[in-house]
Amino acid sequence: MRRCRASIEAAKKLARALGVTLDYLGGETDGPVFDRKTAEREHVFALLDAFLAKSKMQAILK
């Protein structure tokens, strides 16, 4: 029982690190199912990318 619990905990950590669900890791869903936190993180990264691109463009045009 202890070994099984350790495997479940490892799977949870892996899913959390990858930003997917345990169902996805286990092959129970067709595609990754992202939670709200993952979606928000992607939006933040997209905004940062846009900001950096704008800053670079402004530096080039000066």
Rank of each mutant, 00 (worst) to 15 (best):
R2A: 03
D30P: 02
F45N: 04
G19H: 05
I60T: 14
T38C: 07
I60P: 00
D49R: 09
F34A: 09
A46D: 05
L22V: 08
K37Y: 08
D23C: 02
K62D: 14
K62Q: 15
F45P: 00
Q58G: 01
R2Y: 11
V20N: 10
K54G: 04
A11C: 02
A17M: 13
M1Q: 12
T21A: 02
L52S: 12
A59W: 09
L14W: 01
K13H: 07
K56Y: 11
K12M: 13
A6W: 03
M1D: 05
D23L: 01
L18T: 02
R41K: 13
V20Q: 06
R36Q: 10
L22R: 12
T29V: 15
D30W: 07
D49F: 01
F51D: 14
I8L: 13
L52R: 14
D23S: 04
R41F: 11
F51C: 06
P32M: 13
L22W: 10
A50Y: 02
L61A: 12
G19V: 13
E9H: 02
K62W: 08
P32C: 08
A39D: 10
R2I: 08
K54V: 05
A50R: 09
R41M: 08
R36A: 13
I8A: 10
R2D: 06
K62N: 15
L61F: 11
E42A: 10
A10W: 09
K54A: 15
H43Q: 11
L18A: 13
R16F: 03
D49P: 00
A59P: 01
R36S: 07
R3F: 05
E9V: 11
L25C: 12
A59E: 15
T29K: 10
A17S: 15
A15G: 09
K62T: 15
E40K: 03
D49I: 02
Y24H: 15
S7R: 13
A50P: 01
K54Y: 08
D49W: 03
